[in-house]
């Protein structure tokens, strides 16, 4: 599975290279109705880069297919885990949690302009604290509210930045 992942990434890079080359020729080049004296047309640089990328990505894919995947990052993560979290199921649980957190962050980003900064942030913080293991009800409610209001104060009143208002509030 792990090797499949690394091969997929390498393959996607090859696909990207092909896409860049095609897009340069098909979409960009024709729009240059003329080549202004001395200035090259706008599709050359991306085309050259696309070709270089194709060569490199192909080599990379070849290597990914032939050898074991580079798992240094995960090994480092596993090494830093304490004993009781190091079992395969423990690791899997953490990975799932990390993706759940990412999904929360994504939801937060998307909803910020609808719910407004305050509501979206309070929800995000409380949900995240809970997801990452906190059961301290004070932090989950007052803590996240306090942090939200502090950030809002610092950014809008001190720094004069504008934060999303939201449709509701």
């Amino acid at each position: 599975m792990r090797k499949v992942e690394s091969v997929v990434v390498a393959a996607l890079l090859v696909a990207l290279a092909v896409f860049v080359i095609v897009e340069s020729r098909v979409s960009i080049a024709p729009k240059t109705a003329y080549t202004v004296y001395g200035e090259k047309d706008a599709s050359e640089f991306p085309l050259i880069l696309g070709i270089i990328l194709l060569i490199m990505a192909a080599l990379n894919l070849f290597h990914a297919l032939r050898s074991a995947p580079d798992t240094r990052e995960e090994d480092a993560i596993r090494a830093s885990l304490p004993e009781h979290e190091r079992s395969p199921s423990g690791i899997r649980a953490l990975v799932i949690r990390s993706w759940a957190f990412f999904a929360l962050a994504g939801l937060f980003a998307v909803s910020m302009e609808y719910l407004g900064f305050v509501i979206a942030t309070v929800l995000f913080l409380s949900a995240s604290f809970f997801l990452l293991g906190s059961r301290n009800w004070l932090m989950l409610t007052a803590g996240s509210l306090g942090i939200t209001l502090t950030v809002q104060f610092v950014f809008t009143d001190v720094l004069n930045l504008i934060l999303p208002r939201g449709v509701i509030i």
Partner: peptide, 20 residues
Amino acid sequence: MKRLLAILTLASLALCAGPA
């Protein structure tokens, strides 16, 4: 603890009412 919570809740409600 409960008082702190109550105060904070009131404060946040006030802040919400403010803009209205």
